[in-house]
Design a protein around this nucleic acid. Structure first.
Lengths: 209, 209
DNA sequence: CGCGCAATTGAGTTATATCAAATACGGTGG
DNA sequence: CCACCGTATTTGATATAACTCAATTGCGCG
């Protein structure tokens, strides 16, 4: 986790409790407007970070997976502008801000770790913009599938609902469905049980760079 | 600047030179692939941060303005995945990485300042996704204009070329042009000399939330 | 087995891209 | 200061991709 590179002695300084928490699919870890005294590291599973627009519709801005930090945005004390909802079964580690603060003063290594996560979040947000919101809908879906596939250590990966995929790509549910259906007919995508799926990365890669 | 809250004594520790640099419109501050030993703070002017896709087209992922940091992504030593190009006349402050490192050890306040910038960049990237890549083209252009207007302390603001606006919104140059032309006919947008413009924020706000 | 939700499919509509042309604009040199 | 050139912008006609609405099918779960 975040603290994997810290020594035992570091942990002795911690007086506030760090809890491991598990969530079923579709659970709220936190909601838009919550004042959060915690950050969360994802131990396993997939979490969507979404934002509600004033006009009512919702956009997913990022996916969080193993090793990612959620709630960084509230370290300054502001209420969260996002909501974090689990897609599948998720285990997180909940860390009070006070722990971050005190460790930060004493252990430079934590500092580095935090900065690295932050950096990662930022570059992931940017590649989200360039790869997932440009091109036609087939290209976008293909890129999303490859991204999901890449970040799975497994051979298969978690396939979100068409609605969620739409919210990530800025495309309607029906359009996503039409594309995934076509990919399946081409044997580029093979939906499996339990919301999991397999893709022919080579085929997708050569048709959509 | 970044260092506005540091004492004079802090600066005495700096041995590497911090340069102030000025650029005319359309200058490269750095390019995709550059290995950069610097970060830059923007003192004035507007900078576009863009990324080239393998297929050839370019997407602008963020705008940087006074107080923003450029080149944060390369603090880890990796070559930049972005290119930073000035839109108007820009003054920057170029800071070697080594300065960041050494100050970091000695002055926790700098640490906090850095983190805050980072945080700002991240939340700006996210709001870029939700506000500038959703909705129809009129809505997107309206939101971009309001964003540009907001961040100008002036009554008027810098109006990018239609092409650049298109690259920010994921829309073609011609579509942007049709929208801005319509807004101008409605007197919601008034282009001025020197690539500057004025908007009727209230009118735009009520037509596109 | 059947209920409910998610996914697929289709037909019709609309928005945006595309292609092509005309116009406006800014800067340069005479 | 003006005329000219190159570039950016505007405009229009057409093609196409995506949305919308509605109906149907498929699937997981009690």
């Amino acid at each position: 986790m975040l603290f994997s590179d810290l020594q035992h002695e570091d942990f002795d300084r911690i007086h506030h409790p760090i809890d491991d928490i598990e969530y079923g699919p579709g659970s709220h870890i936190y909601m838009q407007g919550d004042a959060m005294p915690f950050v969360y590291t994802i131990r396993s599973g997939l979490v969507k970070l979404s934002q509600h627009l004033p006009n009512g519709d919702t956009r997913i801005v990022r996916l969080l997976r193993q090793g990612d930090l959620a709630g960084l945005e509230s370290l300054n004390g502001q209420p969260s502008e996002y909501e974090a909802i689990t897609l599948d079964h998720v285990r997180v580690c909940r860390i009070p801000h006070s722990v971050i603060e005190s460790l930060r003063r004493d252990t430079p290594r934590l500092h580095d770790a935090l900065m690295k996560r932050w950096q990662k979040a930022l570059s992931s947000a940017d590649s989200w913009i360039t790869r997932l919101t440009t091109g036609n809908s087939k290209t976008r879906v293909a890129r999303l599938l490859m991204l999901l596939d890449n970040n799975s250590e497994d051979d298969s990966f978690f396939l979100p609902t068409r609605e969620d995929m739409g919210a990530m790509l800025g495309v309607t549910t029906e359009s996503v469905s039409k594309v995934t259906a076509e990919f399946t007919r081409n044997n580029w995508l093979r939906p499996l049980a339990q919301h999991r799926a397999w893709i022919d990365s080579e085929a997708l890669e050569e048709n959509f760079e």
